[in-house]
Structures are given as C-alpha cells and as structure tokens.
C-alpha cells in the first residue's frame, strides 16, 4: 500500500478521502484475503477428511510415528508468538516504538523456533522414508495406503510452513520499518494486517495439530 510516514496526510493515498476510509478499506481487504486463505486450506482439509473416512485404521496407525512432544512444543511456541504479535500491536497503538520492536523480534524468534523444530521432524521422516506417494519406503505401518497419510501430512504442514516463512519475512520487514520510525499510533495498518495474518497461520496450526498428532 502507500509509503507511510509519521506525519499524517503523507500516508494517505489520493483516492481516499480520509485516513479512516483508507484504514477500513485495508482491513476489509485483509479479511477477504484471509477468507481466501481459509478456503485454500479448506480444500486440503476436505482431502484429509475424505481419506480419513476411507482409511480410518491406517490413519490411527500412521499417526503414532509422529512425535507428540515436538508437536506440543510447536503448538505452545506458536500460541506464544500470537500473544507477542498482539502485544506488538498494543505497543504501537500506545506509541511505544522500542517495545514494539522488541515484541516483533520475539515473534520472529518464536516463528524461527517453530521452523527449527519442524526441520528436525521433517529430517527424521526423510531419513525413515515416511514420505508421500512413490517416495514412501517405510514399512512399519499397518493398514492400506499409509503413504496417503504422509501425503496429507507433508502437503498440509508444508503449505502451513510456507505461510510461517512468509510471515517471518513480513515481520522482519516490519521490524526494519518500525526502527526507521515509519509507524505511529495514527498509522500502523501494516503491523495490524500482519498481525491478522499471523493469527490465522496460528489458527490453522491449532487445527493441524490434533488432526495429525492426536488422531487416536
């Protein structure tokens, strides 16, 4: 959107009549975008539901190879990051720039932790051959077509991981911009929007976690 500036009319684009209209528009746009994201994941959730109803026992057998401790850790990490993100927005509303930066950095750090844990989980599965489709070589799971479980697992957590990565890039960019003093209590749309996005990413994980790690 527009180049921001701490002085008020600078950030206002020519086609909006006031800052309120601009902010409201951005907000509505963001909610619509989040809706498309939900629908994008929705397709995968439907895919998961159909296959789980076709192969219920296999899903239960297959989920045992996932590490619940790692999954729980990641869940806690993401929920905490959502809190720090919300606190960042609160701080900018109050005009505390330093605090905002600090909260954004912690959010970034937590997101990074999530990715590192995910990396170890993935690496372990690659090693054992618990992979989707033709690449599935693991033999320890009973039931029909266990590779489908891992297709769903890698597709859904993978797409989610990409979203976490995009979120990290956005937060990094916010940190730089906040340090440069581009945001103020009058204008912090970007932080607010990224916050909404981050909560959605978090929310999707809240669904993924029980569907894969706690099936039984």
């Amino acid at each position: 959107m527009s180049q921001s500036h701490s002085d008020h009319p600078e950030f206002l684009q020519h086609h909006f009549s006031d800052a309120e209209q601009q902010r409201e528009s951005a907000k509505l746009g963001m909610w619509l975008f989040l809706l498309t994201e939900i629908l994008l994941f929705g397709g995968l959730f439907v895919f998961y539901a159909i296959y789980r109803s076709w192969y219920p026992e296999m899903f239960i057998n297959a989920h045992t190879v996932l590490d619940v401790t790692m999954g729980t850790t990641n869940t806690i990490v993401l929920i905490t990051s959502s809190i720090t993100m919300a606190l960042a927005i609160r701080s900018i509303q109050l005009g505390r720039l330093k605090q905002t930066v600090w909260y954004l950095v912690s959010t970034f750090g937590l997101a990074g932790t999530f990715m590192v844990v995910k990396y170890f989980e993935y690496a372990h599965k690659f090693h054992l051959g618990q992979l989707p489709g033709h690449f599935y070589t693991f033999t320890g799971i009973e039931g029909t077509n266990p590779h489908v479980f891992f297709s769903a697992y890698f597709l859904m957590t993978g797409l989610h991981g990409i979203h976490v990565f995009v979120g990290m890039c956005l937060i990094l960019w916010l940190i730089v911009k906040t340090k440069q003093g581009k945001f103020s209590p009058q204008y912090y749309t970007h932080i607010e929007m990224t916050g909404l996005y981050w909560h959605l990413v978090d929310l999707i994980w809240i669904f993924l976690f029980p569907l894969f790690y706690l099936v039984g």
């Binding site: 895919f47 192969y55 489709g133 033709h134 029909t144 077509n145 590779h147 489908v148 297709s151 597709l155």
Partner: peptide, 10 residues
C-alpha cells in the same frame, strides 16, 4: 506421484 487421484495408489 502422491496418488490422491490415482486409483492404483488408493
């Protein structure tokens, strides 16, 4: 080849 639409892979 994840097999979602492939009958040979379930």
């Amino acid at each position: 080849g994840i097999g979602i639409f492939d009958p040979a892979m379930g």
